[in-house]
Design a protein around this nucleic acid. Structure first.
Lengths: 213, 213
DNA sequence: GAAAGTATTTTTGTATCCACGTATCATAAG
DNA sequence: CTTATGATACGTGGATACAAAAATACTTTC
């Protein structure tokens, strides 16, 4: 299991960012991170470029690498983009979906709810799995990848949301509605439902975006 | 005018890729490119990471950097994604569009056509300007950026298309229809027209994707 | 002519070094 | 007390030389 050092650095920092271990605005010093994982600066700096492309980090010349934070506007923008991309994904997934797949989605929904009830913030991961599964059915690699990348960016905020609010109570119904829409067999209807689902959750999250920066 | 070395390397290679100076599958050797621009390997390798994130280049472990080529499927996928993203952009742009802006778009359309008639492959750049302008009106930074990135990826194929076919004859009408839709004042109608415009051009381009790779 | 082993080349990563930009913070001047 | 000023420490961006590991090419042997 020998991934390149850059891979390792990328995963390491990404994971930390997903879990919210670094706060927005915090500086990431290549030397420190390199020492942490036991490698030299170069692969870490390369990883920074990728993380910057993902929007997880901001690289300003002569000023190094800073953890990116989202403004409310940026958060809404991401949800707008998600709405059309994941809407496209369900529309494309529709023709090749079968009963077995629908039941799998229901099982994922159950797992999500169990995680939610136990208060485990695994809920966020399960939620990503649910959305990711639907995207995967579209069989569009780039689409899948882009949507996943957006989920990573919003993950820290989802965690804050989940920790603060008891648990997303409406989540079960919302996602069940998506499955029902998939059962309808009408691509454009399912697309519509997905779009509304995603745009509907944005305002709830927005409350938890610290107006800092 | 002091961009970092990495910036310079990124721009340099990106420009070459846009113009199709490197062929898909061709290997990019950091040392050579570094020598070309007069710098060391390090910034070039960092630039490679960004180019890989953009999908312009593929980085395979222990096998270096290879110019990415698109399969027909990938090209269609990019156009599907463009259709929803640029569709979203026009929908969002609609409320803040005025007569002055519409006339500007018509001027861009004229410039595009003039470039087309003179056979100059500036046409591709003008075409990007037209689409870019509409996206810009949405005032959504991330959306604008993502769409621009997709245009860069398909640019080499647009050039081949433009050089082979006399010139996109239907282009004038197609884009005029988009402006007309913007004049209609109905966001969802404009979105629909933009989606159809983009999806309609995909098959024409697809013919010029070499079945290599 | 195929397989195995050896050499070569590339890629990848390490370790160091240096010039320059930025930030900090104490001190001096208004 | 606030604002300049300047010294200093720190980190970035980049260069370079070197080492290790992987992939590729080349023998040699059977």
């Amino acid at each position: 299991m020998s991934a390149t050092a850059e891979e390792e650095a990328y995963r390491h920092v990404q994971q930390a960012l997903r879990l919210g271990r670094y706060k927005p605005g915090e500086r990431l010093i290549p030397e420190e991170i390199a020492a942490e994982i036991g490698m030299s600066r170069m692969p870490v700096r390369e990883a920074f470029r990728r993380l910057a492309s993902d929007g997880l980090v901001v690289l300003r010349p002569n000023r190094g690498c800073v953890v990116a934070g989202l403004t409310v506007d940026e958060l809404y923008e991401i949800f707008e983009i998600r709405s059309v991309l994941e809407g496209l994904a369900v529309r494309l997934a529709m023709p090749r979906i079968d009963e077995e797949e629908l039941e799998e989605l229901e099982r994922l929904l159950d797992r999500m709810e169990r995680a939610g009830q136990s208060g485990s913030s695994d809920w966020v991961v399960r939620h990503q799995e649910f959305h990711g599964r639907i995207c995967a059915l579209s069989r569009r690699p780039k689409l899948i990848h882009q949507v996943a990348a957006l989920h990573v960016v919003i993950e820290p905020y989802m965690r804050i949301w989940f920790d603060d609010v008891d648990k997303p109570l409406s989540a079960r119904e919302e996602h069940a509605a998506v499955i029902a829409a998939l059962r309808s067999g009408e691509p454009h209807h399912a697309e519509q439902v997905m779009q509304e689902h995603i745009l509907g959750t944005a305002p709830m999250l927005a409350e938890f975006v610290t107006p800092s920066r």
